[in-house]
Design a binder for these strands. Structure first.
Lengths: 148, 148
DNA sequence: ATCTGATTGCTAAGTTGGTGAGTGACATTA
DNA sequence: TAATGTCACTCACCAACTTAGCAATCAGAT
């Protein structure tokens, strides 16, 4: 796609596959969120919260939006019972946003099938192959981070 | 992140790296679009159009939005001189949206650095390693498509 | 040749989810 | 203790989407 327009380009199956992966990976949250009746930001918020509680501002940073927007996200998720606000024990400015059972259930139900498939793909790799793939993925991630 | 909530999960460096890659890859267009003074949809449209001309409806499908939204995207891109509408030679219903020089320049300037870096990462792989990586990427893509 | 249905691209109106600015409460540093 | 910074929030505003519906055009069946 970009090949025609970027000078000094050599076609590569790997890069082509990477582009397709990234494209599809971007569509998945859209579709999953639609089915769950959530916005993509709400879904991503649930995903991030599944790794542990965090405040609205942390969420804002993770989602790449303003704290005002994150406030709204938490409002809507709380309204659906997917998360709960609780006061931070040590810092009384903060609010901890905690995933409820309903919230983690939502994440599990919607994303588990995909992760199961990904795990299967993963298991088809030998140990040395896994190392190669991981090195490539980390490298590609670094390359992308470089333009941020 | 999702590990805690998906039953029967085994930690894997590959999957972890994949998740990080996908997350970062989703942030890149946001940031690049911001710098270019475009919406993410507009940037993605430019990217898709760099592979060849297409109509607003095709664009809508590629972007995952309605044709009404795609109409607006083309309007705004045309307003900035990045694309041009021209009548389709054979089908008089259709409009072909064509990238202008300004448009392809925009794509090249904004995305070339990242692709250069990605090509470098790619070039560090041996031929057999490339095959392994590509097979994994294609497999992961199929796994994601399965939930769409 | 004409009817039917599908497709394309668009407009209009309404909804949504975001930003920017600003506030009060609290924490941290000088 | 004063100054500065951080957190979570509200408010007004706006960009970009949606749904609904339109006229023009095409393709297939009759």
């Amino acid at each position: 796609m970009v090949a025609e327009v970027v000078p000094g380009w050599r076609p590569s199956g790997t890069l082509d596959a990477l582009q397709e992966l990234v494209d599809v990976a971007a569509q998945v949250p859209q579709e999953v969120a639609r089915r769950a009746g959530l916005s993509t930001s709400e879904l991503h918020a649930l995903r991030h919260l599944s790794g542990g509680a965090m405040g609205p501002v942390d969420l804002a940073r993770a989602l790449g939006v303003t704290s005002a927007a994150a406030s709204g996200v938490v409002d809507r998720l709380a309204g659906r019972g997917h998360v709960e606000r609780r006061p931070h024990p040590d810092d009384r400015r903060r609010t901890e946003v905690v995933l409820t059972d309903s919230g983690s259930h939502e994440v599990a139900v919607r994303l588990a099938p995909m992760f199961a498939e990904l795990a299967r793909v993963d298991s088809e790799l030998g140990p040395d192959e896994q190392a190669v793939v991981e090195r490539y993925l980390r490298g590609a991630t670094r390359a992308m981070k470089a333009v941020l």
